[in-house]
Design a protein around this nucleic acid. Structure first.
Length: 111
DNA sequence: TGAATGACTCGAT
DNA sequence: GATCGAGCCATTC
């Protein structure tokens, strides 16, 4: 039973992140109600592999903009390449202009 | 059933 | 200002 509603909500939210933008675990966790469930968001990403439709987990980084989850992709560089292909500049596993690229669901989906 | 783990975050030193 | 430790919550062993 690795598919709780929490995962579904996380995936649904991540899928709404527009290309070229990124989001953080903490923001997602907070938006879903439990600001302290950031680790569960990471869990959801772990399970999201092979999901359909695909979950753009590469657009989710930690609060510092670091690609902390790149090791869980097929290839460590895959996450960075996916982001760069969408226009996100990645340097040393960190998203450049992170503040500008940040996509906050609490603001973007408030309308 | 209890203990350990994890793609995180915050507060204290 | 940087580093260390504890908390959180669902899943797994």
């Amino acid at each position: 039973m690795a598919e709780s509603d929490f995962y579904q909500n996380v995936w649904a939210l991540v899928r709404q992140i527009p290309p070229g933008r990124v989001c953080t675990y903490g923001f997602i966790a907070r938006y879903l109600g439990s600001g302290r469930s950031s680790r569960l968001v990471g869990w959801a990403m772990n399970v999201s592999h092979g999901q359909t439709p695909e979950v753009p987990a590469h657009r989710v980084v930690n609060r510092l903009g670091m690609l902390s989850g790149k090791a869980h992709f097929g290839h460590p560089n895959q996450m960075q390449e996916l982001l760069e292909s969408e226009g996100v500049v990645v340097l040393d596993d960190c998203v450049q202009d992170f503040q500008a690229r940040l996509w906050d669901p609490a603001i973007e989906l408030r309308y």
